[in-house]
Amino acid sequence: MREISPVTLELNGVRLEPLQPRHAAGLRAAASDGELWKLRITSVPEPENTEQYIATALEMRPSRLAFAVIDIASEKVIGCTSLHDIDPLIGRIEIGYTWYAKSVQRSHVNSSCKLMLLAHAFDKGYELVGFRTDIFNHASQNAIERLGAKKDGVLRHHALRRDGTVRDTVMYSIARGEWPQVKTHLEYRLARGRSC
């Protein structure tokens, strides 16, 4: 069976730990690096809402498994990411709720996290890994496309933004048959110091 349970993953100096209340101060500091909660196209928590953000993520289990992103050398929390919309029956899972401190954006961190989560999902027998982003989040769309994901389409009038407006959502995916080539591509980019 395609069982996804809390697990710790490490690669390239980055560790993914199951998100816990003890990560609150670190998440607050990471979000403050760039005041990321001010971006209307992300789900980064405001400093005063960090504990609730973590509680909500934990309440969403088993359909969402959230991770704190840790820089191993400094043991600092540098972001958050999740496996979500987990459907073991049909073998579909998504990677999302992803954000990183401004100082580590466009570094090896995103590529390393995606490589770990994709490998974990496909190793557990999932057939397809999806991604979604706001139609106006061009940086996220570019990063997902650099991974090698295919654009599935746009869901119009799909989800609320933090400011109360309704966004269109761009959907992407990587199928099991595409994974070996995507994995090789990601490893190649990481070996050459390129990010996704």
Score class of each variant (00 low, 15 high):
residue 15 R to E: 08
residue 10 E to D: 14
residue 122 F to A: 02
residue 93 I to K: 03
residue 66 A to R: 01
residue 174 I to L: 00
residue 169 T to W: 05
residue 182 V to I: 14
residue 187 E to L: 13
residue 168 D to E: 04
residue 31 A to S: 08
residue 153 G to N: 10
residue 92 R to T: 04
residue 58 L to I: 07
residue 185 H to Y: 14
residue 33 D to G: 07
residue 20 Q to H: 09
residue 88 P to Q: 11
residue 138 H to P: 07
residue 131 F to Q: 00
residue 96 G to A: 01
residue 140 S to D: 07
residue 133 T to N: 10
residue 65 L to E: 15
residue 70 I to T: 13
residue 128 L to P: 04
residue 143 A to G: 02
residue 133 T to V: 05
residue 43 S to D: 15
residue 138 H to K: 14
residue 195 S to L: 01
residue 131 F to W: 11
residue 7 V to E: 02
residue 36 L to Q: 08
residue 50 T to Q: 12
residue 63 S to H: 13
residue 118 L to A: 07
residue 38 K to T: 14
residue 56 T to Y: 04
residue 111 S to E: 02
residue 168 D to F: 11
residue 123 D to V: 07
residue 188 Y to H: 15
residue 155 L to S: 03
residue 109 V to K: 01
residue 192 R to Y: 02
residue 50 T to F: 03
residue 20 Q to D: 09
residue 170 V to S: 00
residue 167 R to S: 06
residue 196 C to K: 00
residue 85 D to K: 14
residue 173 S to L: 02
residue 91 G to Y: 06
residue 188 Y to T: 12
residue 144 I to M: 08
residue 160 L to V: 01
residue 58 L to H: 01
residue 187 E to W: 07
residue 12 N to I: 11
residue 159 A to R: 12
residue 49 N to H: 14
residue 180 P to F: 07
residue 112 S to E: 12
residue 152 D to M: 04
residue 179 W to E: 11
residue 67 F to M: 10
residue 160 L to F: 07
residue 14 V to Y: 12
